[in-house]
Structures are given as structure tokens and as C-alpha cells.
């Protein structure tokens, strides 16, 4: 994210709204970020903050398969390698899917088709974009299966998803996503459904592969720990907006938003007693239909009273507090630094 020319993915003022019977769900409401080739962005936020909706919007997956349900209303700009996607013809976006940008989902078991062998599914992903023979696609799929660390890939090619363990299934998903050498890989909570020990292996794998393939990677998670070692940059989402964004080390060591403080507070830490380790942000995530006025976080923010009413009345702008480090909070930066220091 240093040089404009390196920017590979750029999202500007993205809005994804769903008309429902209860009202307009503003799942994503004015999100902007940039990502360069070979870099990793971690998107962090609670359940329902709009992380998946964002990634599906980038993939162009909100438009397809709505079949009569209220269609998502998408506005803003998404540029992938210079090509604008939100206003593009759906079929040209489809052609980019799987080839230029690929996605890994949270639950590898339900994300793989139960009736087809993993090999068939990976080959299929390759053959959509490459006019090759079955045999050639098989060779490619086996190569990828081996690359993601599946033992005896040639034999496992013909196995069905249910014959794999959770971690191995996620490796299969990763192989499928990487089979076309995409420039952008989105991993939506890739380890949430896995055992803790397996989680670390999958994260290591993603990091290794990124170095090898040089793709831009977005890792989505509600657990800051997951992106701690993986991400170059971190974007913290709350109620469909970005509340803080910046280089990972800055967001971890000098976080500038009370919500980020809460997330960091809920991370397991070695230097704390077990009993005080997990303190999630108190209160429930806000409604996305009637988003709280002003700062959407104010009903849950312990510092809202320090801003003289601004938190309740005015939406805080995303402001640059240090180089490439942005946060949206009315508190004066000096106060924020003081509160954060005091809380440690």
C-alpha cells in the first residue's frame, strides 16, 4: 500500500444494502480500502459486521443466484487490477472469478460438493478457465493437492470430501482456490471451523503459499489472533463500516479506536491471568436496519461520554492519525493514547 501503482485491489465507498421485509439492511455502508500485490489484509470484526458481505461483493457473488429474492443493492467502486467491477457486465466478472480472484470459505465440509470427488471439483475449477483435457486438469489438480500438503495426492484425487479430515478439506479448498494462480485470494474465516492445532497449520500454509504465488490476500476473521502474524495491514469493521485501518503492528501496539481496544482485550494473552483473559466487547452488535446515530459504537462504548455528545450526534470521519493509520473516533488522539496506555 505504499505506491499508487502497486495497488491491485481498490474498494471505494462500497455499499451493500439488502431490502428486506423489516427494512433496508445496510450490511456494508461506505467501506474503502486498498491492497497491493503480495500483501495481506486482515479484516476483523464481530459476527454480522459485514465481512462476508464485503468479500462476496468483491467476488461479484451478490448478483448471481438471488432467484426472486430481494437483490442486493451495491454501489461504490471496486477496481481489480484497474478493472471496475461493480458496474461491469456480470459475465465478465464471472470470468474473473476463480481465475483472477478466488475465495476460501469458513466451513470446508459444506463448501465442497458432497457428490463429487475432490479431484473432480478442483479439475472443474481449472477447466472453467483453461481449455485443457481432463488428463491435463488432473495433473494440475494433483500438483496442487500435493502443494497444499495432502499426502498421496494422486490417490486422494479420487476421494470424496467426507473421506477427509477438517484440516485436509480446507487444504483441498485452498488447492481449488489456487489452481488458476489467482492474483487475489480471499479467505473468509478459513480456520474458524477447525481445531486449534489445525488452525495454525492452515494459517502457515496460507502464508507460505502467498509468498510462493505472490497473490494479494484478504484474511477475514473475528479473531485478531488469526491475523496477528499473517497480515501486513488490518481493517477493523463495525456495523458495515471501517472504524480503524492501518499497518498491523500499529493497530496491534497503538490501536486508535475503542472498539479495537475491546477486540484486543478479548484476545488470549500470555501475560494475563486466565480469568481476565477473555473480556469480549460488552453489549450486542447493533441492528443494521436502525444503525445507532452518530458513532454506531456509542451504545457500547465506555468512553462515549468523554466527547461531549458528539458520539451520539455525528458520525466520526475516518481520520489519519499516523502515516497510513486511520481511525474513526471523536476522542482527541492524545486522550486515546492515554486511555490505551492506562489500560495495559
Amino acid at each position: 500500500m505504499t505506491d499508487e501503482s502497486e495497488v491491485f485491489l481498490s474498494v471505494r465507498d462500497l455499499k451493500v444494502h439488502f431490502p428486506t421485509d423489516d427494512g433496508l439492511v445496510k450490511a456494508v455502508d461506505g467501506l474503502s480500502f486498498e491492497l497491493a500485490r503480495g500483501r495481506t489484509l486482515g479484516i476483523v470484526g464481530e459476527s454480522g459486521s459485514g465481512k462476508s458481505v464485503t468479500s462476496l461483493a468483491v467476488m461479484g457473488l451478490h448478483g448471481v443466484g438471488q432467484y426472486g429474492r430481494g437483490r442486493a443493492r451495491i454501489s461504490g467502486e471496486i477496481h481489480l487490477d484497474g478493472q471496475e467491477l461493480t458496474g461491469a457486465d456480470p459475465d465478465s466478472v464471472r470470468r474473473l472469478r476463480g481465475r483472477e480472484m478466488a475465495m476460501i470459505f469458513q466451513d470446508p465440509l459444506s463448501s465442497l460438493h458432497p457428490y463429487y470427488t475432490v479431484g473432480t471439483q478442483i479439475s472443474e475449477a481449472y477447466r472453467v478457465h483453461h481449455p485443457v483435457t481432463k488428463a491435463a486438469a488432473r495433473t494440475r489438480a494433483v500438483e496442487l493437492l500435493g502443494r497444499v500438503g495432502i499426502p498421496q495426492p494422486d490417490r486422494r484425487f479420487d476421494d470424496y470430501p467426507h473421506q477427509f479430515s477438517g484440516g485436509m478439506r480446507q487444504r483441498v479448498m485452498i488447492a481449488m482456490a489456487l489452481v488458476n494462480n489467482p492474483d487475489l485470494l480471499i479467505a473468509d474465516e478459513p480456520t474458524t471451523a477447525l481445531d486449534v492445532t489445525v488452525q495454525a497449520q492452515i494459517l502457515d500454509l496460507i502464508r507460505d503459499l502467498q509468498q510462493e504465488f505472490g497473490s494479494a490476500v484478504i484474511v477475514i476473521t473475528h479473531d485478531l489472533g488469526v491475523v496477528a502474524e499473517l497480515a501486513d495491514d488490518i481493517l477493523v469493521m463495525y456495523a458495515g463500516r471501517c472504524v480503524e485501518r492501518g499497518p498491523a503492528e500499529r493497530v496491534f501496539y497503538t490501536p486508535q479506536h475503542p472498539y479495537t481496544w475491546g477486540l484486543l482485550g478479548s484476545m488470549p494473552r500470555f501475560d494475563r491471568e486466565r480469568s481476565e483473559r477473555l473480556t469480549p466487547v460488552r453489549g450486542a452488535p447493533p441492528s443494521l436496519i436502525n444503525v445507532p446515530s452518530g458513532c454506531a459504537f456509542h451504545p457500547r462504548c465506555p468512553h462515549a461520554d468523554l466527547t461531549g455528545g458528539a458520539s451520539r450526534s455525528t458520525v466520526p470521519e475516518l481520520r489519519e492519525v499516523a502515516e497510513r493509520h486511520f481511525a474513526a473516533c471523536h476522542l482527541p488522539v492524545a486522550d486515546r493514547n492515554r486511555i490505551w496506555e492506562a489500560s495495559r
Binding site: 457473488l61 443466484g65 476463480g98 481449488m176
Partner: peptide, 25 residues
Amino acid sequence: EDYIRTARAKGLAEPVVIRRHALRA
């Protein structure tokens, strides 16, 4: 289902998604 989303994420055209992935299930 999630695997239909996966099929779309591969870049398969919708008729193929329906025929090969949805119809069989």
C-alpha cells in the same frame, strides 16, 4: 448451500451451476 456458492466462486456459468451442482443434489 455453501457448495453452490463455491461452484459460482469458481467462475462457472449459472446454467452449469444449476445442472451440474444443484440438480444432482
